[in-house]
């Protein structure tokens, strides 16, 4: 059953992504990107990544879409037809895609419990987390405790991005309508 849902959702995702490449109305593209994020959030639930699904639903379908529309209100919603060639990018994309699909042929099958990715540190985390930290949610434990350095770095990246946006756009200082 889960495989069936997975199959259908991935099909939807592919259709939405291809529609986004075709459309020229950026408002419609922004709405489709919200749908795309929501579909991927549902897919993450099917694939057991509940924490990730939670984040993707709030971030992708919520905040990113609001930001896109906020940007479009400032920059205009219609993409101009440019005179550039579309054949060369298409060929590059098809060639890269073919190379990547050739690369996947060596990958372990989906859901394979013997895949190398499940043999290294993951069993240790699943075994030791309740004993060492007393936290049942392994994702939280690994995020905040075992991989604390990574998360500190990620928080710093978010901090820096927030600073960058303040520097670029300003926050509550400029008079409305004023330019830089």
């Amino acid at each position: 059953m889960a495989e069936f849902v997975d199959f259908i959702l991935l099909g939807f995702l592919a259709v939405v992504a291809l529609a986004m490449t075709r459309l020229r109305n950026l408002f419609a593209v922004a709405m489709l990107s919200g749908i795309y994020s929501l579909l991927s959030a549902v897919l993450f639930v099917v694939l057991d990544a509940v924490d990730v699904a939670f984040t993707e639903a709030a971030v992708g379908a919520g905040i990113t879409t609001v930001l896109m529309i906020g940007t479009l209100a400032l920059t205009g919603t219609e993409e101009k037809i440019s005179g550039r060639h579309t054949m060369i990018p298409l060929l590059i994309v098809l060639f890269t895609g073919a190379a990547l699909i050739y690369g996947t042929l060596d990958m372990p099958a989906f859901e394979d419990p013997q895949a190398p990715v499940h043999q290294h540190v993951a069993p240790k985390y699943l075994r030791d987390t309740p004993i060492e930290t007393g936290v049942p949610n392994v994702v939280t434990a690994v995020l905040a405790s075992y991989r604390g350095y990574d998360t500190l770095g990620e928080t710093t990246v978010i901090f820096t991005a927030g600073l960058g946006v303040i520097i670029l756009l300003g926050l509550g200082q400029r008079k409305p309508g004023g330019t830089a």
Binding site: V52, V59, V142, L143, E154, I158
Partner: peptide, 14 residues
Amino acid sequence: NPLPHVLILTAIVV
């Protein structure tokens, strides 16, 4: 496997 979940969770917000 919880490890990819951790990596992607932070990657989404970043």
